[in-house]
Protein backbone atom coordinates (compact mmCIF):
# COMPACT_ATOMS: atom_id res chain seq x y z
CA UNK A 1 0.00 0.00 0.00
CA UNK A 2 1.37 3.39 -0.96
CA UNK A 3 0.95 5.74 1.97
CA UNK A 4 2.27 9.15 2.85
CA UNK A 5 4.05 7.67 5.85
CA UNK A 6 5.67 4.67 4.28
CA UNK A 7 5.25 5.60 0.65
CA UNK A 8 6.87 2.40 -0.56
CA UNK A 9 9.89 4.49 -1.45
CA UNK A 10 11.54 1.95 -3.70
CA UNK A 11 8.39 1.44 -5.73
CA UNK A 12 7.72 5.16 -6.06
CA UNK A 13 11.33 5.72 -7.03
CA UNK A 14 10.89 3.25 -9.85
CA UNK A 15 7.73 5.03 -10.94
CA UNK A 16 9.31 8.47 -11.16
CA UNK A 17 12.44 7.06 -12.80
CA UNK A 18 10.30 5.42 -15.45
CA UNK A 19 8.92 8.88 -16.15
CA UNK A 20 12.22 10.77 -16.04
CA UNK A 21 15.25 8.50 -16.16
CA UNK A 22 18.73 9.89 -15.82
CA UNK A 23 21.23 10.29 -18.63
CA UNK A 24 24.85 11.37 -18.80
CA UNK A 25 23.99 14.94 -17.77
CA UNK A 26 20.59 14.95 -16.14
CA UNK A 27 19.97 13.06 -12.90
CA UNK A 28 17.11 10.63 -12.62
CA UNK A 29 13.91 11.82 -10.94
CA UNK A 30 14.45 9.67 -7.88
CA UNK A 31 18.02 10.94 -7.47
CA UNK A 32 16.64 14.41 -6.80
CA UNK A 33 13.79 13.27 -4.55
CA UNK A 34 10.80 13.60 -6.87
CA UNK A 35 9.10 10.57 -5.33
CA UNK A 36 8.67 12.44 -2.03
CA UNK A 37 7.32 15.52 -3.75
CA UNK A 38 4.88 13.40 -5.72
CA UNK A 39 3.24 12.16 -2.57
CA UNK A 40 3.41 15.48 -0.75
CA UNK A 41 1.92 17.50 -3.59
CA UNK A 42 -0.59 14.85 -4.44
CA UNK A 43 -1.86 15.06 -0.89
CA UNK A 44 -1.80 18.83 -1.16
CA UNK A 45 -3.89 19.01 -4.32
CA UNK A 46 -6.05 15.88 -4.25
CA UNK A 47 -6.10 15.08 -0.55
CA UNK A 48 -5.75 11.81 1.34
CA UNK A 49 -7.26 9.89 -1.56
CA UNK A 50 -4.23 10.62 -3.71
CA UNK A 51 -2.16 7.65 -2.59
CA UNK A 52 -5.05 5.30 -3.16
CA UNK A 53 -5.78 6.78 -6.55
CA UNK A 54 -2.12 6.50 -7.48
CA UNK A 55 -2.09 2.86 -6.51
CA UNK A 56 -5.35 2.20 -8.30
CA UNK A 57 -4.24 4.03 -11.39
CA UNK A 58 -1.01 2.08 -11.57
CA UNK A 59 -2.77 -1.16 -10.81
CA UNK A 60 -0.30 -1.80 -8.04
CA UNK A 61 -0.57 -4.35 -5.27
CA UNK A 62 1.59 -4.88 -2.25
CA UNK A 63 3.49 -7.64 -3.96
CA UNK A 64 3.83 -5.84 -7.27
CA UNK A 65 7.36 -4.69 -6.77
CA UNK A 66 8.50 -6.60 -9.81
CA UNK A 67 5.78 -5.40 -12.14
CA UNK A 68 6.53 -3.56 -15.34
CA UNK A 69 6.12 0.07 -14.29
CA UNK A 70 6.39 1.42 -17.82
CA UNK A 71 3.53 -0.78 -18.96
CA UNK A 72 1.42 0.27 -15.99
CA UNK A 73 2.08 3.96 -16.67
CA UNK A 74 1.22 3.59 -20.34
CA UNK A 75 -2.02 1.85 -19.43
CA UNK A 76 -2.89 4.61 -16.97
CA UNK A 77 -2.19 7.29 -19.58
CA UNK A 78 -4.54 5.58 -22.02
CA UNK A 79 -7.24 4.83 -19.48
CA UNK A 80 -7.39 8.19 -17.70
CA UNK A 81 -5.32 10.85 -19.45
CA UNK A 82 -6.57 13.67 -17.23
CA UNK A 83 -5.41 12.18 -13.93
CA UNK A 84 -2.21 10.99 -15.60
CA UNK A 85 -1.53 14.54 -16.72
CA UNK A 86 -2.13 15.80 -13.17
CA UNK A 87 0.42 13.31 -11.88
CA UNK A 88 2.86 14.20 -14.63
CA UNK A 89 2.55 17.89 -13.84
CA UNK A 90 3.66 17.22 -10.29
CA UNK A 91 6.57 15.04 -11.41
CA UNK A 92 7.85 17.44 -14.07
CA UNK A 93 7.58 20.59 -11.95
CA UNK A 94 9.13 18.81 -8.96
CA UNK A 95 12.02 17.59 -11.09
CA UNK A 96 12.87 20.86 -12.80
CA UNK A 97 12.84 22.84 -9.57
CA UNK A 98 15.80 20.95 -8.10
CA UNK A 99 19.27 22.42 -7.99
CA UNK A 100 21.03 19.54 -9.79
CA UNK A 101 18.63 19.78 -12.71
CA UNK A 102 19.01 23.55 -12.93
CA UNK A 103 22.77 23.07 -12.91
CA UNK A 104 22.42 20.55 -15.75
CA UNK A 105 20.43 23.11 -17.77
CA UNK A 106 23.25 25.59 -17.31
CA UNK A 107 25.64 22.93 -18.57
CA UNK A 108 23.67 23.08 -21.83
CA UNK A 109 24.80 26.70 -22.15
CA UNK A 110 21.78 28.57 -20.81
CA UNK A 111 21.99 31.33 -18.23
CA UNK A 112 19.15 29.68 -16.32
CA UNK A 113 18.89 30.85 -12.73
CA UNK A 114 17.98 28.81 -9.68
CA UNK A 115 15.20 31.31 -8.97
CA UNK A 116 13.81 34.28 -10.91
CA UNK A 117 14.57 36.66 -8.05
CA UNK A 118 16.58 38.29 -6.70
CA UNK A 119 18.41 39.69 -9.61
CA UNK A 120 16.24 38.73 -12.54
CA UNK A 121 17.87 38.36 -15.95
CA UNK A 122 20.14 40.70 -17.82
CA UNK A 123 18.66 41.59 -21.24
CA UNK A 124 19.56 44.21 -23.82
CA UNK A 125 17.43 47.31 -23.19
CA UNK A 126 15.11 48.71 -25.82
CA UNK A 127 17.04 50.77 -28.36
CA UNK A 128 14.92 53.66 -29.67
CA UNK A 129 17.43 54.34 -32.47
CA UNK A 130 17.05 50.86 -33.98
CA UNK A 131 14.48 50.33 -36.74
CA UNK A 132 14.42 46.71 -35.65
CA UNK A 133 13.07 47.70 -32.25
CA UNK A 134 11.39 51.06 -32.82
CA UNK A 135 9.43 50.20 -35.95
CA UNK A 136 9.44 52.69 -38.78
CA UNK A 137 7.01 50.75 -40.94
CA UNK A 138 3.60 52.31 -41.45
CA UNK A 139 1.67 49.04 -41.50
CA UNK A 140 -1.51 48.77 -39.49
CA UNK A 141 -4.73 50.72 -39.38
CA UNK A 142 -7.75 51.39 -37.23
CA UNK A 143 -11.26 52.58 -37.85
CA UNK A 144 -11.88 56.02 -36.33
CA UNK A 145 -15.18 56.32 -34.49
CA UNK A 146 -16.88 58.21 -37.28
CA UNK A 147 -15.84 55.70 -39.90
CA UNK A 148 -17.37 52.59 -38.35
CA UNK A 149 -19.98 51.40 -40.82
CA UNK A 150 -22.40 48.44 -40.93
CA UNK A 151 -20.83 45.27 -42.33
CA UNK A 152 -22.57 42.82 -44.63
CA UNK A 153 -23.73 39.64 -42.98
CA UNK A 154 -23.51 37.19 -45.81
CA UNK A 155 -20.08 35.87 -44.82
CA UNK A 156 -21.05 35.36 -41.20
CA UNK A 157 -23.10 32.20 -41.73
CA UNK A 158 -25.50 31.65 -38.85
CA UNK A 159 -23.51 33.70 -36.35
CA UNK A 160 -26.32 36.21 -36.08
CA UNK A 161 -28.79 33.42 -35.33
CA UNK A 162 -26.56 31.89 -32.71
CA UNK A 163 -25.76 35.12 -30.94
CA UNK A 164 -28.13 37.91 -31.94
Amino acid sequence: MVSRETGQPRLLARVVDAIIPGDGLFPSASAVGVQGKLLERGFQTVGPAFAESLEHALGLADNAIDMDITTALAAWETRDPASFQDMLTIVYLSYYETLPVKAAIRELGYDYHDTPQPGGYRMTPFDPTSDQENPQHRRGNYLPTGEVKPVHWSALGDLGKRVG
Binding site: A18, I20, D23, Q85, L93, E97, I105
Partner: peptide, 23 residues
Protein backbone atom coordinates in the same frame (compact mmCIF):
# COMPACT_ATOMS: atom_id res chain seq x y z
CA UNK B 1 8.49 30.76 -18.25
CA UNK B 2 10.62 28.18 -16.48
CA UNK B 3 12.02 24.78 -17.38
CA UNK B 4 9.21 22.82 -15.71
CA UNK B 5 6.49 24.67 -17.58
CA UNK B 6 8.41 24.31 -20.83
CA UNK B 7 8.85 20.56 -20.27
CA UNK B 8 5.09 20.36 -19.80
CA UNK B 9 4.62 21.85 -23.25
CA UNK B 10 4.20 25.49 -22.25
CA UNK B 11 0.68 26.65 -23.10
CA UNK B 12 -0.28 23.92 -25.58
CA UNK B 13 0.55 20.74 -23.65
CA UNK B 14 3.01 19.60 -26.31
CA UNK B 15 5.03 18.19 -23.48
CA UNK B 16 8.29 16.36 -23.43
CA UNK B 17 7.42 12.66 -23.50
CA UNK B 18 7.90 10.70 -20.33
CA UNK B 19 10.39 7.86 -20.49
CA UNK B 20 13.62 7.38 -22.38
CA UNK B 21 13.09 10.22 -24.86
CA UNK B 22 12.39 12.84 -22.23
CA UNK B 23 15.80 14.50 -22.10
Amino acid sequence: QGAGFQALGAFSNNRAPWGKDHH
